[in-house]
Design a protein around this nucleic acid. Structure first.
Lengths: 115, 115
DNA sequence: ATAGATATATCGGACGCCCAACATTTTTAT
DNA sequence: ATAAAAATGTTGGGCGTCCGATATATCTAT
């Protein structure tokens, strides 16, 4: 089902190079709860293009089915929040991400990354 | 089997989160020329597991077919080097990568990323 | 109340990445 | 000379991401 990769626990299923969208969603939700279109807009700022519904909603559904996020319906919105499991998964994913790409980003210079 | 890559001109599918392997290969080759198994080993250090032949060789073939890298056969090795086009593609990819993920890595703290 | 905007959701097809397994060629060791 | 090791390469299947198209439900104008 998931591609099993790397040396990470099997339940942390976002740690190959294909899981960047899910990783980004978890990270954004660790900042604040959002509904689907808010997430799409935030991702759009980073990527340079807002992902289509066919991209974002299946990803949310998948994360929810794995218990990493939870939805709470509010009118026409489904507001997602990070679960405790999602937070743990994010921590491990960040460690992997940092090891894999940290020096690549660092060489660009933290000054160019400064807010 | 292995179609388009991360060329990343704006009209094409800029902002794709699927091109991380090719991106990593280009970045490694910008440091020094390497042959396939050297690349696989370097990627393994970052990811935590050495990619299989079925992962690395098709990726190299695809990058070469797009003119982003070039092979020079040396005995039993095929040594790859970055082309001028590959260098330009890498520059654009790095800009995208930094915008998409810079702040995520920054919050972990550059000290934890220091060599 | 009707129309428009907003948000959610699914489908089909494509692509990039991933592995395990198998196969071939070249170098090195015995 | 023969075997082992190293490097390259292919095949087959699966999965996550991506888009465009389509559909439905809910708020917000008018």
């Amino acid at each position: 089902m998931n591609g099993e990769v790397l040396d990470l626990p099997k339940e942390v299923h976002l740690c190959d190079m294909r899981g960047m969208l899910s990783f980004t969603i978890l990270w954004l939700l660790s900042k604040r709860s959002m509904y689907g279109q808010e997430l799409a807009t935030e991702i759009g700022k980073r990527r340079g293009g807002k992902p289509n519904p066919g991209t974002i909603y299946p990803a949310l559904k998948d994360l929810a089915s794995h218990g990493l996020i939870e939805a709470r319906v509010e009118g026409r919105n489904s507001v997602y929040r990070l679960t405790k499991e999602g937070a743990m998964s994010l921590t491990k994913s960040k460690e992997y991400f940092e090891r894999a790409f940290g020096d690549i980003l660092l060489e660009s210079g933290p000054k160019s990354m400064a807010k």
